[in-house]
Design a protein around this nucleic acid. Sequence first.
DNA 1: TGCCATACTTACGTCTCCGTAGGTTACGGG
DNA 2: CCCGTAACCTACGGAGACGTAAGTATGGCA
Lengths: 224, 224
Amino acid sequence: MMDGVAIDGSSTSSDKPRRGRRVRMTGAERRQQLLDIGRTLFAERGFEGTSVEEIAAKAGVSKPVVYEHFGGKEGLYAVVVDREMRQLLDMVTGALTAGHPRELLEQAAFALLDYIETYTDGFRILVRDSPVAQSTGTFASLISDIATQVEDILGLEFKARGFDPKLAPLYAQALVGMVALTGQWWLDARKPKKAEVAAHLVNLAWHGLDGLEQKPRLIGHRKS
Amino acid sequence: MMDGVAIDGSSTSSDKPRRGRRVRMTGAERRQQLLDIGRTLFAERGFEGTSVEEIAAKAGVSKPVVYEHFGGKEGLYAVVVDREMRQLLDMVTGALTAGHPRELLEQAAFALLDYIETYTDGFRILVRDSPVAQSTGTFASLISDIATQVEDILGLEFKARGFDPKLAPLYAQALVGMVALTGQWWLDARKPKKAEVAAHLVNLAWHGLDGLEQKPRLIGHRKS
DNA sequence: TGCCATACTTACGTCTCCGTAGGTTACGGG
DNA sequence: CCCGTAACCTACGGAGACGTAAGTATGGCA
């Protein structure tokens, strides 16, 4: 135990540590650092598997500092999760704004994969279960949040096409589930490139196994 | 704490408790009872959230009995998880034996939903993460096991149709993910009947959003 | 230069829970 | 009817972790 980083436990993105034997950060800096470290540890060990002392140690600081900033382990965890959910929701919601349903699907799938790639630890945390884990704060509830948005879009489309709108939730859930679990798989596999994965997901969701296209293409995407 | 069931904590399916003040079961009986109780508790509180004492108490027995039978908490947990994985794998594998791909998909989807309905607690346990949770024993790994089977089927089909077989894993994962997460959602919603859910899932997977059928029908299924 | 707020420390109390040592009751066969 | 064995109990040691009380250093500002 006690791996590295005892004095000057820098993990923050941009730190000029004021080279001295013991780092004395401003409140905001330390807070941010603790959040970063917490996210990392929660991601790899889960909530219960991570101790406050461990977090403090990795920050090169003693326990009470953590309590000072977040009031306790749950406090820190709550902030970490909240930030992560916001991030993910923002990205996906942003991708679900305008366009033909197929484009929406494509953009949303890409957004999710993008989030997974960029904020891997965050995704891992969201996938694990939360402390009390009744129904709120769970991954399932987040998925449902997203699914609700997809639901609205599908609902409109269903009405326009004469389908039963009551079925929209089911199909929304299926679509989100498809993308989410594929993302989880891709997290370890990393085999096809992100954009390609998105293209194939859209291919499947849009044409089905029956009318699958051989070389699906993404219509348009912004970065990477 | 200490809810109900202190003496004669029966939870077993078929028990004639030999009415007496203190129940004295045979080894096998007690073992089975502990497994049942363990499954229930692990399902609702998770591994770390469940204490050996709690399990013992609910069985109307003291801690050392649990250690006698399983050597510890992890021992019990391992057996519970193993049984559940076997059950699920058997059901899904059984559904993936013969027939046209579409039928296979249909049967597998139905099998998973069936498992979820019948062994709800087990499914909850499998979905939660395991103790050390490196990569083995996780839900993700189980999903991958199932996905591998789907993969083989898809692989053949892909070759026959001239698609790149390297993509089979991706599509397999997507299909399994679709069904699995929809199942997880259905666990709380329970709105459409199981068979109907399966039908819609197949509808989506087979025809895609583009060619969705209004009233999909299951071709054939055995029970309920 | 001296003071004071802020960042941080050491040390401790307490609680929960795992796992075990050693003793006790009851069932069933000779 | 008696005794051994299988089922079960009380009691304890000890580790780990949360959270707090009270004290210390440090850096900016008057």
